Computed example of a mutant assay.
Amino acid sequence: MFNTDDIDLVYKNFIENNIECLSGPQYFDFTAQGFGKSKAFYFKDPDGIILEMMQNGRPVNGAAGTEECCKR
């Protein structure tokens, strides 16, 4: 799994660079299970291995502003 502060931008860049994405960014709310909110999508690396890109509802590596990604 890879983390980002701007999943929509990463997704756009992947599409523009012909990286195979299995879906667009999807919203997940697991607060009831104690895990919080996030957005994620799956993509394939050059060898066809499926990987996950995720943006947490809390800051990644201390970055500011990521809380906005997951407000609904």
Score class of each variant (00 low, 15 high):
62 G>D: 11
24 G>A: 15
13 N>S: 12
30 F>C: 07
68 E>G: 06
51 L>T: 07
45 D>G: 02
41 F>G: 04
9 L>P: 05
34 G>R: 06
52 E>R: 10
47 D>E: 15
65 G>T: 05
50 I>K: 12
36 G>V: 01
40 A>L: 04
24 G>D: 13
6 D>C: 03
8 D>R: 11
18 N>I: 03
38 S>F: 06
6 D>F: 02
30 F>D: 12
24 G>N: 13
48 G>S: 11
59 P>M: 09
4 T>S: 06
47 D>G: 08
37 K>C: 04
38 S>V: 02
48 G>W: 13
70 C>A: 12
63 A>H: 14
20 E>K: 15
16 E>R: 07
21 C>P: 06
72 R>L: 11
10 V>P: 02
42 Y>H: 12
13 N>K: 14
45 D>N: 04
37 K>L: 05
63 A>L: 14
49 I>W: 07
33 Q>L: 12
3 N>S: 13
4 T>Y: 03
69 C>A: 15
59 P>S: 15
65 G>M: 01
48 G>C: 11
2 F>E: 04
71 K>R: 14
3 N>P: 00
57 G>Q: 05
52 E>D: 13
12 K>S: 14
33 Q>N: 10
71 K>S: 10
42 Y>F: 15
27 Y>H: 15
59 P>W: 08
70 C>Q: 03
55 Q>D: 06
10 V>M: 09
71 K>H: 10
6 D>W: 00
57 G>T: 00
58 R>K: 13
56 N>G: 09
40 A>F: 00
69 C>E: 02
56 N>K: 04
22 L>Y: 03
8 D>Q: 15
53 M>R: 02
67 E>W: 07
33 Q>F: 12
69 C>W: 04
16 E>L: 09
14 F>R: 00
52 E>P: 01
14 F>E: 02
14 F>A: 03
49 I>L: 12
10 V>S: 05
61 N>P: 00
71 K>W: 08
64 A>M: 13
30 F>W: 13
71 K>D: 08
61 N>G: 03
10 V>K: 03
53 M>Y: 03
34 G>Q: 08
31 T>H: 07
66 T>I: 06
45 D>Y: 02
18 N>G: 01
61 N>V: 11
28 F>T: 10
2 F>G: 01
67 E>M: 06
65 G>F: 03
23 S>R: 06
13 N>F: 07
27 Y>I: 09
44 K>L: 12
32 A>T: 11
26 Q>P: 00
9 L>Y: 09
30 F>P: 01
32 A>D: 15
35 F>S: 09
54 M>F: 09
54 M>H: 08
61 N>F: 13
6 D>T: 06
5 D>K: 12
66 T>G: 08
64 A>E: 15
35 F>T: 03
4 T>Q: 04
12 K>D: 09
10 V>R: 01
23 S>G: 05
39 K>N: 01
66 T>M: 12
35 F>R: 07
39 K>A: 02
15 I>M: 11
43 F>Y: 04
56 N>T: 09
18 N>V: 02
34 G>H: 07
14 F>Y: 08
72 R>N: 10
70 C>D: 05
2 F>L: 13
16 E>A: 14
9 L>D: 13
15 I>V: 15
14 F>K: 01
5 D>A: 15
46 P>L: 11
42 Y>W: 11
42 Y>P: 05
